[in-house]
Design a protein around this nucleic acid. Structure first.
Lengths: 231, 231
DNA sequence: ATCGCTATTGGAACATCGTTCCAGAACTGT
DNA sequence: ACAGTTCTGGAACGATGTTCCAATAGCGAT
């Protein structure tokens, strides 16, 4: 916006929005969400907090930009050509794996619903929903439902993963939760006690995919199977 | 836990966990999530921060307790007797309405996945899933999928509602977002641009229920319609 | 080459937050 | 009446996001 001079860059070894975001991602991945501080970021970049604020509005914008960078890295191009249902599955798993690798992404996605990364997800899902032959007046509800599920379970999983950042592995953490659930009042929480048994052994990825398949199965009755005019 | 003395209460006009939570809910509802501060809370209760910490561990526990108080208020008893699908719909709408009245609940629900309020939701949903005749080995995935959708869309809606706390009504806010979406690159965001048109006029409650119905429709093929032994 | 001018930097300073600490008040049992 | 525990109120601490501002680096014009 302020760049109307014909000089694309004035420095080679200095600060830039990209460098800041890259450093932020390194901190987020390496030391967790709580460790991302403007002071820690400034120290890693060997500069001051003020210099960072020249390139990025505030912390929310920094997290949104970092999240968008991760989500944008999910390969969409190789997916578009495939059968829509399989494309949705693969894209959803791409989001899941991205959150598995970068747990902070899950929290951020469910924290700011109108950031750019969410639009990418909505577009990817919505395009496949269209291709599935869902009528126009149902596309909005169907696409946002799938997106909400992705963001919901992703957020859950991310926070679960964040819980065992301190060296505790996931199985142990889930075991502790299952033990706590098993001590609930049987009269009020029969179901939770029941699935507490399955909790430690379950596969998150499979659970995630099962939810997607549930939604895809729900779409079936809505589909207009008339083939599109030219394809 | 520390109450082993036979005195149920020592004061009548003073601090208690319930009073603190009630005051916290008043602040959260009246001035938004950001306004809930231990200082503001102490001022409203005419005491100091230390006195609050005697009754409540930390801010996370305070928010979890406030959230649990709201979720526990959703009438489950009148629902249990109904047809399972309708019961799930009504309970989900109960959660939606609770978040509509108390937007901060949505954010809190998707922030701490193992707080007690989440267990209440999981139990309510899971029990109905069982009653629907979903096989035991699928109950876990189905119940958590429905819960994730509820938490996902609830969080989205809550943050959307939080955006227009400053007197802006929801329709205006959605209109602004739609306008921003309409300016996206048509080549990369055809679907988002398409639904941007529907965004300002859509009904959140209907959108929410449509997602639930999608999941319920997806359950149908899984159901074992053999009636339970005695019912 | 030198001179402004703007873009950019680095770090001090500020307001605010969650939390801890502790001296004392209020209450209880003996 | 006394001792001991429970509870209160507010000062104090460390950390954070953000703002502010003097100092600097690079660029076009002279």
């Amino acid at each position: 916006m302020t760049l109307k001079t014909p000089t694309p860059e004035r420095r080679t070894s200095a600060l830039s929005k990209e460098a800041i975001i890259a450093a932020a991602i390194e901190i987020l991945d390496g030391q967790g969400e709580a460790a991302l501080t403007f002071r820690a970021l400034a120290a890693r970049l060997a500069t001051g907090s003020g210099a960072i604020y020249w390139h990025i509005a505030d912390k929310q914008a920094l997290l949104a930009a970092a999240t968008d960078h991760i989500i944008a890295g999910i390969a969409v191009d190789e997916i578009v050509a495939k059968e829509p249902r399989q494309a949705i599955r693969e894209f959803a798993l791409g989001v899941f794996d991205a959150i598995d690798t970068h747990p902070w992404v899950g929290g951020q996605l469910s924290r700011d619903p109108w950031q750019h990364a969410v639009l990418r997800i909505l577009e990817a899902v919505g395009g496949r929903v269209q291709a599935l032959g869902v009528p126009a007046d149902a596309q909005f509800n169907v696409a946002t439902a799938i997106m909400s599920f992705i963001l919901g379970l992703a957020g859950q999983y991310a926070l679960g993963a964040g819980m065992c950042e301190g060296g505790i592995d996931r199985a142990t953490a889930l075991g502790e939760i299952a033990a706590r659930w098993a001590q609930l009042d049987p009269a009020n929480y029969p179901f939770v006690r029941l699935i507490a048994i399955q909790l430690p052994g379950h596969d998150d990825r499979e659970q995630f995919l099962a939810g997607i398949d549930l939604l895809l199965a729900g779409i079936e009755p809505l589909r207009d199977t008339t083939p599109p005019p030219d394809d």
